[in-house]
Design a protein around this nucleic acid. Sequence first.
DNA 1: CGAATAAAATGACAAATGTCATATTTAAGA
DNA 2: TCTTAAATATGACATTTGTCATTTTATTCG
Lengths: 144, 144
Amino acid sequence: MFSISSKYAIKAVLYLALYSDEDHKIMAKDISKSINVPQAYLAKLLQELSRRNIISSTRGPKGGFYLSDADRNQSLIAIVDVIDGVDKLKTCLLSIKNCNEKRPCPLHGLMAPSRLVFLNGLENKTLGELSADIKAGRSYLPFA
Amino acid sequence: MFSISSKYAIKAVLYLALYSDEDHKIMAKDISKSINVPQAYLAKLLQELSRRNIISSTRGPKGGFYLSDADRNQSLIAIVDVIDGVDKLKTCLLSIKNCNEKRPCPLHGLMAPSRLVFLNGLENKTLGELSADIKAGRSYLPFA
DNA sequence: CGAATAAAATGACAAATGTCATATTTAAGA
DNA sequence: TCTTAAATATGACATTTGTCATTTTATTCG
């Protein structure tokens, strides 16, 4: 479904959504410890996300990664797109080209409806909303 | 979602469901040509499926792979299980252990309902039914 | 300005997945 | 029973994905 990289990235960004802001930047090292993901690898992912403007960062002392208010309006699809490429989620299950409603592959009917629901969720729910869910106890992001 | 291997395997088995039976066995080489999948690689997959009794085969002249009537009552989940392991489809999206309805991860609500529908389809629809769909023009398995 | 700190960039290494070639075993038919 | 045709077994190789270490660049603060 998602690659390991995407999973790490999502966890890290949700962590940032929960605990960081402009005035509370967090070092890659600390995030990696908290969410239990290899340090150097996470750093690479966060750098890529920062470069693509999904998250924010500043270098030097007192620096680190954080989410700006604008960042919080992004959705998870943005993260997955940067790391895995969004096509992976949208292409035919059997990788048959021109698979569509008119000419569905044998698995199309099984998957298409549920996938649509899922993709809409990924696209529409913002990072801010997701972290609000966690803060309100509607969902849980355990760090192990 | 599925690995490339699983995709190849599914296509090949559907091909067998369409064109083979006890009296019309098909060589790996011919299947690979028809569904456009590397020969030696496909052979390996088919051997594994045969060894695990998902499909049938006989060696020697006039030999090849085929589906018995019993094989036709299997579902796709059996194939995916042999190739990828079924857990890949069932574990939490973020690989969080103990993610469940009571203590859902942030993505759980987004995915769980649609996944259930999908898994049921994979489990309940038999190979026979799938090939009947294709024969009736309700779905399409193009060979490119 | 200069020292310290942290991200960014680069590249080497490891593991998993996918691909291919060769040798072995089994079955059919003359 | 011998030859031939096919699956089966084994292992080498390639590519992708994930992991780690080192160096470079930018920023803060004394």
